[in-house]
């Protein structure tokens, strides 16, 4: 392969790189738009620990629940329902990402605490 052929193939590769990047970003943006368009206001929050649904609370009643989570039940996450939204206000998990997650209120939205194997999902009904 001589030099000019090599530069050509490098150029081709760069062009394909851009097409790949553009395609992924386009798909992602379409996915986000589809999600924003189709989700609706939720009615209840479903609490699941270790993949099993343990409780369900209405979003229309304000309350605060201490959840016992994790594989050994030693995990603690505080679920707060206030003004039609649900959030985790406090947790003993190592990263605390669930507590930093913004409040959720729409159908399909969820807060996940991986260390404590907790999923809080908003549902329509």
């Amino acid at each position: 392969m001589n030099r000019s052929e090599q530069t050509d193939s490098v150029k081709q590769c760069r062009k394909r790189d851009r097409i790949l990047i553009a395609a992924i970003l386009l798909l992602a943006v379409m996915g986000i738009f589809a999600w924003l368009l189709f989700r609706q206001k939720g009615a209840v929050v479903e609490v699941s620990v270790n993949g099993e649904t343990v409780a369900e609370y209405s979003l229309s009643e304000d309350r605060q629940v201490e959840l016992s989570t994790g594989t050994d039940g030693q995990g603690r996450n505080t679920l707060v329902i206030r003004g039609g939204t649900a959030e985790v206000s406090d947790a003993n998990c190592p990263d605390g990402l669930c507590a930093e997650h913004r409040a959720v209120s729409r159908d399909g939205e969820s807060i996940v605490c991986l260390p404590n194997r907790l999923v809080i999902t908003v549902r329509g009904e």
Binding site: I24, A28, V29, S48, R117, V119
Partner: peptide, 23 residues
């Protein structure tokens, strides 16, 4: 893996966001 371990598809909503940051 998250879908399998947590037995929920909801986490799939993260995919578009992760696709952008992953890119």
């Amino acid at each position: 893996v998250a879908m399998a371990l947590l037995k929920t598809e909801e986490i799939g909503y993260y995919m578009p966001v992760l696709a952008i940051t992953g890119t």
